[in-house]
């Protein structure tokens, strides 16, 4: 048995799901915020940035209170037969929450950099708001969004605190790489810990290099 592949596969699965969810959720919220004219906008933005600055254990605690069997939302989920605590789906929710601001902030900056005149041009040329979004705003913001998604993926790869709080440390079920590293060090298994540390580092460095390469200033040659 190779103990490395089990947590690695689980971590990739969790990080990919968290990134995919954030691509829909973060992009939608970012577009809404970038077009919203209200004094409340920055307040909402600050609240949405909280996951970036709050300790992950605090986020994990909030999630437990919310999603645990006795939590408001958790009790309702329980009646539907959905259990999130101590499951890999719980780990996905933890990673999604922690990485959300990275996608949201990058996407909002990218949408704000889109020349509003191009959206006006699309509407005069016969497009409704949804078609304008998919044919003009989204493609023009796609580099910034992709860069944000890669950052979010790297962040989700390394998620520890919130994941441990809500998903626990069940080898083969919820034990992601970062949790497994902690467990290995606690057990004195420095060799396994070292291998897992190296793998995590490599995956994150590759994601960050890709994100830097896609960053807005780098490849803006398509703008006139």
């Amino acid at each position: 048995m190779d103990p490395l592949w089990v947590p690695l596969a689980l971590t990739l699965k969790v990080a990919l799901w968290a990134t995919a969810i954030n691509l829909v959720l973060g992009v939608a919220v970012a577009f809404g915020l970038s077009r919203w004219r209200s004094h409340m906008r920055e307040v909402v933005d600050s609240v949405l940035t909280l996951p970036l600055v709050l300790p992950p254990t605090v986020l994990g605690y909030y999630l437990l209170v919310l999603l645990g069997r006795r939590g408001t939302f958790g009790a309702w989920l329980d009646r539907l037969g959905i259990e999130l605590v101590f499951t890999w789906q719980g780990a996905v929710i933890a990673s999604t929450l922690v990485a959300f601001p990275l996608v949201q902030k990058a996407a909002r900056a990218a949408f704000e950099a889109v020349d509003p005149q191009l959206e006006d041009a699309a509407r005069v040329l016969g497009l409704g708001r949804a078609a304008t979004f998919f044919r003009v705003s989204l493609p023009l913001a796609s580099r910034g969004i992709t860069a944000g998604a890669l950052l979010a993926f790297a962040r989700a790869m390394g998620e520890f605190g919130a994941t441990l709080m809500i998903a626990g440390n069940l080898p083969g079920r919820t034990q992601t790489l970062s949790v497994a590293i902690y467990a290995a060090v606690q057990a004195g298994d420095d060799r396994s810990a070292g291998v897992m540390v190296a793998v995590t580092s490599i995956v994150c460095v590759v994601a960050l290099l890709l994100a830097g390469w896609l960053a807005p200033d780098h490849l803006r040659k398509t703008r006139p």
């Binding site: 020349d115 005149q117 006006d120 041009a121 509407r123 005069v124 040329l125």
Partner: peptide, 20 residues
């Protein structure tokens, strides 16, 4: 009427061509 139903063409000052 929304812009798309007006049957009006618009040429913007710096043309607003779609760069992508």
């Amino acid at each position: 009427l929304p812009p798309r139903e007006r049957g009006v063409g618009y040429v913007f000052q710096d043309y607003a061509l779609f760069p992508h």
